[in-house]
């Protein structure tokens, strides 16, 4: 007997249904046949995800960069192990060819490895010892901003999704990701990768649902420090920016690929420390 999948949310390392009990079906590409039922996150699920992210950030952000790099690399390994699942899912739900699906999975795995390598190196490229006029050492170093909400684009690309997640995560931010409407089913295998890579619970949380319902709460939530917005709807971007003024949220529109160092440093804060020169 074939069992229809119900794909749940990924919050705090667990797979809960939406607290609202709601779900929506998605179909196989160009078909009336149901592929899976997807949990439809409510504002309370978003709140729970942010609370989980707060806990997760305390572990993830305070790990050594080297340890974070190891975990990101582990994600690449786990994703490689799920290659057939990813490829099958992309083909079934997006209707893309085997070659294109494999290309996207390759890009996703490469992104994990790339940012694993970068996780303990970007600091050296972005930090500085500042020339100051006085008997002080002055250093500037990057710190993660905290909790970042990542709003996915409506046109799905697995490689870009992973690249965005890994780049924000590499510096120690925790993430609440709202997946786009085109391929929400990716949540399940992707969450399984995160759940089996020694990632601290809550460091990455994945939600599926209707963005129109969730974005006002993303914009107004005081705990979300920054938003990476890939969604092309300028009205949503405008509203998030407006609501985000309440806690000076950094809202970064991310419609195109950017330089990888910038992809990381857009979500860090630079901290400058002055230290007196001892005798």
């Amino acid at each position: 007997m074939k069992v229809l999948k119900t794909i749940k949310l990924f919050i705090g390392g667990e797979f809960p249904r939406s607290e609202s009990g709601r779900s929506f079906p998605i179909n196989f590409h160009d078909s009336e046949k149901i592929y899976a039922n997807i949990a439809q996150a409510s504002r309370k699920d978003l709140r729970a995800a942010v609370e989980a992210a707060e806990v997760g950030q305390k572990s993830w952000g305070f790990m050594t960069a080297y340890n974070r790099a190891q975990i990101l690399y582990r994600m690449a390994e786990m994703a490689e192990g799920k290659r057939h699942e990813f490829v099958g899912l992309l083909k079934d739900t997006l209707g893309i060819s085997d070659k294109e699906a494999n290309k996207q999975v390759d890009e996703a795995i490469d992104a994990f490895i790339y940012y694993a390598g970068f996780a303990d190196k970007f600091q050296q490229m972005s930090a500085a010892v500042n020339p100051v006029a006085g008997p002080h050492h002055s250093f500037t170093t990057p710190d993660p901003v905290g909790i970042v909400a990542l709003i996915c684009e409506s046109h799905f690309d697995f490689g870009r999704l992973v690249s965005n997640i890994a780049s924000v995560s590499a510096s120690g931010n925790s993430l609440v990701v709202v997946l786009g409407p085109e391929c929400p089913a990716i949540l399940q295998p992707l969450a399984e990768v995160f759940a089996t890579s020694d990632l601290p619970k809550g460091a990455i949380n994945l939600l599926t649902g209707h963005l129109k319902e969730l974005y006002p709460h993303i914009g107004s939530h005081m705990e979300i420090r920054s938003v990476s917005c890939q969604n092309e709807d300028t009205e949503i971007l405008y509203e998030i920016k407006k609501l985000g003024t309440s806690n000076m949220k950094r809202v970064v529109p991310r419609y195109e690929n950017v330089d990888s160092l910038k992809a990381i440093t857009d979500f860090v804060e630079f901290k400058t420390v002055w230290h007196p020169i001892g005798t």
Binding site: R47, V50, E54, H217, S220, H221, M222, E223, S246, N247
Partner: peptide, 9 residues
């Protein structure tokens, strides 16, 4: 306010 607040406040 309708907004979720942050522990840091």
């Amino acid at each position: 306010t309708g907004r979720y607040f942050d522990n840091h406040y």
